[in-house]
Each structure stands twice: as C-alpha cells, then as structure tokens.
Computed example of a mutant assay.
Amino acid sequence: MRHVLKAAALAIVSLSVPAWADGCTGQNLFDTMPADKKARIDAAVRDVPFRDGLLFRASKGELQITLVGTYHFGDDRHAPMVKRLQPVIADAAALYVEAGPREEARLTEALQSDPSLMVDADGPTLPERLSPDEWQQLSDAMSDRGSPAVITSRLRPWYVSMMLGISPCMLDAMEKSGGKTGGLDHLLVHQAQQQQTPIHALEPWDTIFDLYSDLTPAQEVDMIRTALPSAAHADDYAVTLTDAYFSGNVWEIWEFGRFDAYENSGLPKSEVDEQMALAQDRLMDNRNRKWIGVLTEGADKAHRDGKGIVAAFGALHLPGKAGVLNLLQEQGYSVQRLDG
C-alpha cells in the first residue's frame, strides 16, 4: 500500500503532462502514423492560440511575468531551460508553481493519513462497474503500476485514470529515486531555494480532490475507458508526447490523446469529445482562470520592488482560449514567445 500511496502523490502532482523518465524506452508513434491521421491532428491544432512554445514573457507596462511550461518528470533535456532561467529566477521577486514543497508535503501527509481520499471502501467495486474484459485490462495495467487487483478494485476512478497515463518504468524510476520526479518544476524550485527566491503555490494543496467531486458514476467509468487504450503501450505513448513537449508542440500532445481515444477506447466519438472537454475544463481551464488573479497580483506586488515574477506550471496550461497566455492577453498583457 505504501507504494500505491507514493504513486498517488506522484500522479496528483503531475496532472498536466503524461509521464516519462530517463531510462525508459519506446517508439515515437508519430513516426509510424498514417499521413491522414497526422493531417487531422494538425488541423485540430492549427487555430489554437499559443499552440506552440514553452517559454514566454507577459508584459503590461512595467509589470513582467516570465512563464515556462513544464514537464513534471526527469529528462536530461531540461538542462538548457534550467540554465536559461537561473538568472531570471535569481532576479525575480518570487517563483510561482502549481504546488510548492509545503503543498506537496501536505498532500502526501493527507494521502497517508486518510486513504479514503483515493479509496472508496463503501461503493460498488470497479469489477462491478466495468465489463469483465475492461476489468481484466485495468487489473493488468494497474498491476504493472504496482497496484494489486484487490487494491485497484476499490480505488477511486479519477485516480485510476491518472495512473493509467503514467509509464510503469517511470514509477520504477521514482521509487529508486526516493519519490523525486526530477521534473522541470522541481529543478526550478531547487534553483529558487538556492537563490533564496520565495516560492508560492498557485492553488491550495487539496485542489485535486474538488476537481472530480461532482462527477456522475457514468462519467467516472468513462474516464477509465478513455484512459485504458494508452495504458497498453504506455512507453510508446509517453515517448511520443515527451518528444512533442521538447519540440514545443504543446497542443499536439492534447490532440494526439483525443485521436488515440477515437480509435482505441471503444467509446463513440461524441463520448470521447465529452470526456476530453470534461478533462480540459477540470484539469486546465477552470484552474487557469483561478491562477490569473494570483499571477497578476504577484506581478503587481513584485513591481513595487522593481522586479518581475516567474511562473512554472504544466505546459498544457499555456495554450488555448482559456489558456494562461490568452487569459493574460485579455487582461491587457502583451505576450512574447522567448524560445521560438
């Protein structure tokens, strides 16, 4: 159970980008993708605001926010971004992240002290809610991720769907490192600590538990069904999406998942779109809107001291009409890409 609790904390902290880690092997699925499917993904991405890029500056008069889209797991390719941001963080009034060290510690403590946060001891089990074939697929996939069937049967669906997106070898690497992901967020937090730059969280530590609290039973099960196809080839899936991240093709990550679910989830296209819209709304858009006030107030406070702020969060929060960059633009900020 201790391993499952560690995995729970890892999955929750790493909401916004599918997982990968150094030492895992797989194939980039774009390399073998039929041209017509790639064309459909390209078309879906084409008109999304700020669809590409990882590093931006938002300015409003003398107010300045440096924004970096992060990937939450270890990779040697983080090094250039860390080096580039070292002097920026040193000069900043504060670094803003989804969850700082205090929030992560509080989350882990809560999961360890209250298993009901991720385990449903009273309701119907997952084998009762899924078809026999679906349960077998799920049981096998979660076993690969360190969760025996007897535990998986009682896990809450929102947590299961997150775990299915994490490669088993990533979890192994995390276990060997003592629970540290080595992701860009943590690397930048370490830089801030070394430079004695204050670190602020963009949201409360328990935000995740409210994201799915009002889902219907049918929506909960469909979350699992949508996530199951990628679990069978998690290494390939993760390599594909991680390569897209380091190429700056951020929204391509999201649309790849949509088209994969169209083909492999067994759900009608309309239900896949409903699940994707639900996930985007809960995991990204609603949180983005709440972060804007935190960021703009932080920038205003920093300006009084003649400084700016740095904000580092999952890359999928950057693009889109309800993405952080577009929302800042609507607040009168001008946005400039720095890594293009």
Rank of each mutant, 00 (worst) to 15 (best):
R2I: 15
V4S: 10
K6Q: 15
L10A: 10
L10I: 14
A11R: 01
V13F: 14
S14M: 09
D22E: 14
F30C: 11
M33I: 01
V45H: 04
V48I: 15
F50S: 03
D52V: 05
S59M: 11
L63S: 05
D75L: 09
R77F: 11
A79T: 11
V88F: 00
A92R: 01
V97S: 03
V97W: 00
A99L: 11
E104Y: 09
E109D: 09
A110V: 08
L111C: 04
Q112I: 12
L117G: 04
D122I: 10
T125E: 13
L130Y: 00
S131M: 14
Q136Y: 09
D140S: 12
D140Q: 08
A141I: 00
R145H: 10
I151G: 06
L155M: 12
L155C: 02
W158R: 05
V160D: 04
V160W: 01
V160S: 02
S161D: 08
G165R: 05
I166R: 00
M170A: 15
L171D: 01
G179I: 03
G179A: 06
T181G: 06
L184T: 02
Q193A: 09
Q193M: 12
Q193W: 05
Q196F: 13
A201M: 06
E203M: 08
T216L: 11
M223S: 09
A232D: 14
A238H: 01
A238E: 06
V239H: 03
T240E: 08
T240A: 09
T242C: 15
D243Q: 13
A244Q: 07
A244R: 02
G248K: 05
N249I: 10
F256V: 04
G257K: 04
G257R: 01
D260V: 05
Y262K: 00
L267R: 02
L278Q: 03
A279C: 09
Q280L: 07
R282W: 05
M284E: 14
D285V: 03
N288H: 06
I292C: 05
G298V: 07
K301V: 08
A302I: 06
A312M: 10
A312D: 10
G314R: 00
H317T: 06
P319G: 10
G340E: 14
